[in-house]
Design a protein around this nucleic acid. Structure first.
Ligand SMILES: [Zn+2]
Ligand SMILES: [Zn+2]
Ligand SMILES: [Zn+2]
Ligand SMILES: [Zn+2]
Lengths: 146, 146
DNA sequence: TTAATGTCTCTAGCAACTATAGCTTCAAGG
DNA sequence: CCTTGAAGCTATAGTTGCTAGAGACATTAA
């Protein structure tokens, strides 16, 4: 049995984050010691590592909640899990496309500035006028983390 | 003079967002009509368009605040503005690198799954074990939007 | 035994909005 | 002139995924 600190260290998750996961119900309520401190089993460590890894891959906690409940029923079809992963892949691809456009515009801005006064700064000029951009980089959909 | 609704329509910004920008002081307090409604000049539209464009390029409101105050002093050197843009470019490049790694891992997961039961699902398996990954995709630094 | 660390609960804060409630003002039609 | 509906007002709370504090209790090592 691990204390919350040890668990966090092993899984690479901060202690308050673990309590937060319990609070939102993505980790089950932990057992408690005589002195009311949380105690975790190896199973809990695996579950937390799963969450951590999925977060690192950009899945939302909502998606992870679904993935966990799927993984708790090993005999079901994995179609739903695959669909979640595919949706996440699509999300990543769309963000990648957008970031690539942003990178191009930022590079252009930075390169074109001759480094004089603000009045002649290409960075300020482009920021004030999207028609000076070559790509269509506007904010299309949601922008979570990842 | 534009009402807040017209301003929002012209700049592509939702009305509550404009009020929010005013509240946090990135837009100056608007003039008011006799009936206490906000009225905006062409200058305000330009300022809002600048903000919108910079947000679309992923700059934080804090960075935009600095860019705006620079652009209000046209005779200064533009070095500070260029530095902000370069920092944003670096941020975008680092996100791009990470998303590229995520994409590779997600593709591998999705491709490798044969589509049977959860117990044999490669998606679930990889999520539970980072050592099955080929890249080092762990969460490195801050992850704002963009 | 005492001091240092770890853990407990609860609350508030971060970014950048978005949504809701309950009101007032405005513009157009009858 | 009056009514109706859209648009505006303020203020507050919710979103996502945590993170940071306050103040009290538990555990462990010297
Ligand atoms: Zn410049
Ligand atoms: Zn642009
Ligand atoms: Zn599968
Ligand atoms: Zn991995």
């Amino acid at each position: 049995m691990l204390t919350i600190g040890k668990l966090g260290a092993q899984a690479g998750v901060k202690v308050p984050t673990i309590r937060y996961y319990e609070q939102i119900g993505i980790l089950p309520e932990a057992e408690r010691s005589a002195g009311n401190q949380r105690l975790y089993s190896r199973k809990a460590l695996e579950r937390l590592a799963f969450i951590r890894h999925a977060r690192d891959l950009g899945f939302t906690l909502e998606a992870i909640r679904d993935l966990l409940s799927l993984s708790d029923n090993p005999d079901q079809s994995c179609a739903a899990a695959d669909a979640i992963a595919k949706a996440q892949l699509a999300e990543v691809e769309s963000r990648l496309a957008r970031l690539t456009a942003l990178k191009a515009e930022l590079e252009r801005m930075v390169v074109q500035c001759a480094g004089g006064r603000i009045a002649d700064c290409r960075v300020i000029e482009v920021l004030g006028d999207h028609s000076l951009c070559t790509t269509d980089h506007r904010h299309p959909e949601s922008e979570a983390s990842a």
